[in-house]
Simulated scan of single mutants.
Amino acid sequence: MTSRELITDYIVDVWMDGDAESLEPETPITELNIIDSAGIFDLVHYLQSELRISIPVQEISPKNFRSVNAIAELVDRLRKGEGGNAA
């Protein structure tokens, strides 16, 4: 499973009652209030424990959490930068 699929599945299950049809990779999830600021921190915790990565506080920004694609790009960048080190 790709990071994009993992993120999409989690958002759909937790905040969208399983309705995956209305979530595209570029859907502005924060602008549409699919996820609020508390939800972002829940998602960060999930990603850190599920993918065993560390997401620095300075990376938790509206830009990095605006869409599934943006979150997946952040995760992929952090995974490469950590060289596989667990959080």
Rank of each mutant, 00 (worst) to 15 (best):
M1G: 12
M1N: 10
T2R: 02
R4D: 09
R4M: 13
E5K: 07
I7N: 04
I7P: 02
I7Y: 05
T8W: 02
D9Y: 01
D9M: 02
D9I: 01
Y10N: 11
V12M: 05
V12F: 06
D13K: 11
V14F: 10
V14L: 07
W15I: 09
M16S: 04
D17E: 15
D17Q: 07
D19W: 00
E21I: 08
E21C: 04
E21M: 06
L23C: 04
E24R: 03
P25N: 12
E26H: 09
E26D: 13
E26G: 03
T27W: 11
T30M: 15
T30W: 04
E31L: 10
L32K: 11
L32S: 08
N33D: 15
I34S: 04
I34L: 06
I35H: 11
I35F: 08
D36C: 08
D36N: 14
S37I: 07
A38E: 07
A38D: 06
I40V: 15
D42S: 14
L43W: 00
V44N: 10
V44T: 08
V44Y: 10
Y46A: 10
L47K: 00
Q48L: 10
S49P: 00
S49E: 15
R52K: 13
S54F: 10
S54A: 14
I55L: 12
I55R: 01
P56V: 05
P56G: 07
P56D: 05
V57D: 15
Q58K: 04
Q58P: 00
E59G: 07
E59Y: 09
I60H: 10
I60C: 14
I60V: 15
S61F: 03
K63Q: 12
K63P: 00
K63E: 13
F65D: 09
F65P: 00
R66K: 12
R66S: 15
R66E: 14
S67R: 06
A70R: 00
A72S: 14
A72F: 06
L74F: 09
D76Q: 09
R77M: 09
R79D: 02
K80Q: 15
E82Y: 03
N85G: 10
N85V: 12
N85Y: 02
A86T: 08
A87K: 07
A87G: 12
